[in-house]
Design a protein around this nucleic acid. Structure first.
Lengths: 333, 333
DNA sequence: ACACAATTTGCAAGCGTTTACCTTGTTATT
DNA sequence: AATAACAAGGTAAACGCTTGCAAATTGTGT
């Protein structure tokens, strides 16, 4: 026996009113007599009626669903952002469609179209950067989007993050103050504007301030992984660097691993600053000093901003920068 | 000027066929002349038509969306499972609605109802356990569900995981072989059947085999966090234990932290086995020996299993156990 | 008791698809 | 040449809801 699913009609009939009224009470519309509302709610409860969100979405053109695009959910950086997003989203009753993006595969266009076809009310993007093409298909759809933990070169797109340049400027300056002349910059792909532009800018700025010449020999590019960090250590060491600013924790952990293995004393012989302050920083030995991005908050604020955009509220600032801090642990003096 | 959204009618008109035909080509139905198909595809491309998945869902009663319920996305354990799920899901063109569950808050019922109202075609659950109540509302909806990395006491619900009992039996046996008589079992909430039943059973079994009496003084319950691990060390040490099996990596890292701080030499004075083999195990010093659950695979297989259930295919085994392995690193001899 | 306003309700037209069922034109069969 | 069989495409009825508008009901002031 097929159990028939309960629709708004069934409720209407059982409550002896029209379906419009049911819809009204479900949606909290004020134009319903208190008595009727009570009766309807009872019936809803009795019949175990559960409004069909798909039908609702079709009729109202709102899905109360947002799309979240990120590179890798097992990366604590994104996971933390995602958590902030998730919490605020559920606070505002939005659901999240999570899609991960293999940045190399170049299926971004497809992913975006898929999300748009699902009629998401908004999007949060955490990829490296929004391509022109994506911006275009996005523009034609009017779906609001905000970048979390990422920057838009031209500030056309709303975004929430920290002042990367300033943060790196600060930690590199500290390393300089500690007496280092040769400081390595170990980042991910420099094509990513965060590393290749903002962070590197901060690094250069700090050097300049201290009248140290920038040398591209001290700039390293590696994948974000422990393995890559371990592998790059020799090169870093051989460059003559006595300290390093690393843009990501796994990478920094790998470097630390190899450094320890090669009997380099950290922080005495070599200092390391990393960037994301994930738990990793607390379980390595020595523990890693790090820039601390308020990841959870970035996610939360990004989501909050998105809700405003979805409600067409006035936005005061298109791009918000949250305060960061610097956590000194054992990998620096 | 409001840009009108392109519907199937627009395409039909422009291609000079009926909307049914458009629908057919979009859905890959065979009853379309090759020539017509080509023409339609061109028009679709030209008009930039994007089928409305919500309308589709309403008409077809399929959302090509599944719901994923997990406790905490920043926990690498769940993130890894999620990644496996995500990859397979996108392989099969399913979208994922991610919802996290504050297990203490007790809003599970609501979360589930929300997901069901969105008409998800299936569910993957990673919480501690499915309450009777949830099972009931689930049963009345016919939506298939599979547990990933979790067990159903009565094997009523499909699930994918490893043989927890066996795994723990093995590592504890190894510790015993290394000469330990007093081995601590440090787990999360023992109400969670995985820890409180399966793993603890393995522990007991190993003791029994070696004719060591079980003592509840050696069983510790803690939250899954570095902090909790650090805090519990003294108690563990004072219990007289000379080794520990820990059910989670953060917890193990915390214990390791405190042990090192108290100048306990690991593994010489104290051995530690942990359970999830997340990256954490590789960045601690000494590196942690661990049971290795194939988390990604568990997620992937769970999702694959779910696709079968959604297609009403014949399922050979309701509950599948994947092989685990044991990775020896530096925290054990 | 009456006119008018406000409050509640119902009606029915969408929302953009899918799909069962028909119609038409072709080809193969005898 | 007549008929069967099929391929290709069209028609229109769902799917379960929201919502503008009209109708009915109730309340108010006189």
């Amino acid at each position: 026996m097929e159990k028939k699913v309960v629709t708004i009609y069934d409720v209407a009939e059982a409550a002896n009113v029209s379906m419009a009224t049911i819809s009204r009470v479900v949606n909290g519309n004020a134009n319903v007599k208190e008595e009727t509302r009570k009766r309807v709610l009872e019936v809803i409860d009795r019949l175990n009626y559960r409004p069909n969100a798909v039908a609702r979405g079709l009729a109202s053109k709102k899905s109360t669903t947002i799309g979240v695009i990120l590179p890798d959910i097992t990366d604590l950086y994104f996971a933390s952002l995602a958590k902030g997003i998730d919490d605020v989203a559920s606070m505002y009753k939005y659901n999240i469609i999570l899609t991960s993006l293999q940045e190399n595969i170049g299926d971004e266009e497809q992913i975006l179209n898929n999300l748009l076809s699902k009629q998401v009310d908004g999007l949060i993007y955490m990829g490296k950067q929004l391509s022109k093409k994506l911006k275009r298909t996005l523009g034609s759809s009017k779906t609001p989007i905000v970048l979390a933990g990422s920057v838009d070169r031209n500030n056309e797109t709303a975004s929430v993050n920290i002042d990367f340049t300033d943060a790196v400027y600060n930690v590199v300056s500290q390393l300089i103050q500690n007496g280092h002349k040769k400081i390595a910059f170990v980042g991910g792909s420099l094509e990513n504007p965060i590393d290749g532009k903002y962070r590197l800018d901060g690094y250069k700025k700090a050097l300049k301030k201290a009248h140290i010449n920038f040398s591209s020999n001290l700039v390293f590019e590696a994948e974000y992984s422990v393995r890559a960090g371990e592998a790059i250590w020799d090169a870093v060491k051989n460059s003559g660097a006595t300290a390093a600013y690393v843009t990501e924790d796994l990478l920094a952990s790998g470097i630390l691993n190899s450094a320890m293995k090669s009997a380099t004393s950290i922080p005495d012989d070599f200092e390391i600053f990393t960037s994301n302050n994930t738990v990793l920083c607390e379980v390595t030995r020595p523990k890693l000093s790090s820039i601390e991005e308020p990841l959870y908050d970035i996610g939360a604020v990004a989501m909050r901003l998105l809700t405003k955009m979805m409600n067409q509220e006035q936005i005061d600032e298109n791009t918000v920068k949250l305060p960061y801090s610097i956590v000194k642990r054992e990998s620096t003096n």
